[in-house]
Design a protein around this nucleic acid. Structure first.
Lengths: 235, 235
DNA sequence: TGTACATCAGTGAACGCGCGTTCACTGATGTAC
DNA sequence: TGTACATCAGTGAACGCGCGTTCACTGATGTAC
């Protein structure tokens, strides 16, 4: 065992208190990536890893929730950056939407605990505007608008479509995280299948010209392609 | 304040140790419904609420995880019962799938913490077979098979379709739970929209006859319905 | 240039708490004789 | 029917631990004169 590693930090310069703040957020983020819940990372552990005493944390954050919130904001920014980069070279709005969605899910799978923290755990301070003003959400919604303008999705309010597609991406992302052992087969394929099915479903709703209900879905399918097999009596 | 309520239980009869076990599970389940995480419910709190001392719990469960696992099993059983009841009077496989999906999401929204525990939190002891043999999953998959047999979904392995539809239901369910403050509008409508879009997407994949990719989706849409508006240059 | 002083980032020690789990024990119940 | 005894569900007290947070303090830094 090594000695209790008292690597004392150099004290910050007068004006540069923000440096320690940023370092605390970065370290907390790193530790949270390896924990399975917020309770798994303590203020003391963060302080230790930064090389500072626990009370120092309170010079920069009101309390633990405040620190966690800062990490969540950082995670969302990273997610947005990953999405933007993935969608930068898309050929059209539909491709961009796909690239965004794939990048979203890949981020979730690559940083499961960060994703859990940001999108699956209960919000410590829930705020509509904060989510809707979130860069990732804004970029996603803008692309849905492009799809509407391109005639891919039915005209109208983009918000429900954005929420629906987000649900689809979140569904496959969070299920991959929560139940990674399921027989997903090739993960990228599964993700693309789900995202395309959702997008296609919405596009098809536009084709049908009416909101989809199961009755309409069935009717629509019957009209266009009569059953290839006789339905068996259900056991 | 009332006196420390020492309501001592009657000691169980010799053979009826299972009665206390069941009572512990029921109480733990009730307490978990009001907590935001497993850490929010302690062995001590469960013991208190049952009217028993903490060590008694260990006569019936190896440790806390074991107790939680019993609650999760109970939650899944309740979920399956709710789904079965909802789908009992469905007219066809597609309607049954819809009823199952709606019941699934309703259960999640009505019991958010139970759903979080069972489907969103990390599995304490992950087990493929346990999930795939789970009644709710089996019933869901069987209905997908019926849909395939009825020609609604493309022929082939039902498992990917089941997983995809589960992802869709899980997506809207868990997002409603994690971000209830978003502008969902009418919740039932949002749920039906997402589920139908997913189902319709898969059905449409069957129509197209090839796996969906964004390129194919766009092409397919263009072939069948040229853009109603000229795409604007993206800003 | 030198010195007294104000500032404030960070410290050390402690507060009070609740946790999961263990262990020797109790005492009501059922049973053997 | 009566009594000694074995069983074992449940108890009381404690173990060792880590937690979030507070508070009076320190001492390097920058500044006023």
């Amino acid at each position: 065992m090594t000695a209790p590693a008292v690597v004392r930090r150099r004290r910050s310069q007068r004006g540069s208190g923000d440096q320690l703040r940023a370092e605390i957020v970065a370290v907390a983020k790193r530790l949270l990536a390896a924990a399975t819940s917020v309770d798994g990372v303590s203020i003391r552990a963060v302080a230790d890893a930064v090389g500072v005493t626990p009370p120092s944390i309170y010079l920069h954050f009101a309390d633990k929730n405040d620190l966690i919130a800062a990490v969540v904001a950082d995670v969302f920014a990273e997610l947005d950056a990953a999405m933007l980069e993935a969608g930068a070279r898309a050929q059209g709005p539909m491709e961009k939407l796909r690239d965004y969605g794939m990048a979203y899910v890949r981020f979730a799978v690559d940083h499961p605990e960060h994703y859990r923290l940001a999108a699956m755990d209960p919000c410590p301070r829930p705020d509509v505007d904060e989510v809707l003003a979130n860069s990732a959400f804004v970029h996603f919604n803008a692309t849905v608008v492009e799809c509407i303008e391109a005639g891919i999705f039915p005209a109208g309010d983009p918000l429900p479509i954005t929420l629906d597609l987000w649900s689809a991406a979140h569904g496959i992302a969070s299920l991959l995280i929560a139940k990674p052992f399921l027989p997903w087969g090739d993960r990228d394929q599964a993700v693309e299948r789900v995202l395309c099915a959702a997008a296609l479903g919405h596009a098809a709703v536009g084709l049908v010209g009416e909101p989809a209900t199961p009755a309409r879905v069935t009717e629509w399918l019957k009209r266009r392609r009569p059953s290839r097999r006789t339905p068996r009596a259900s056991r």
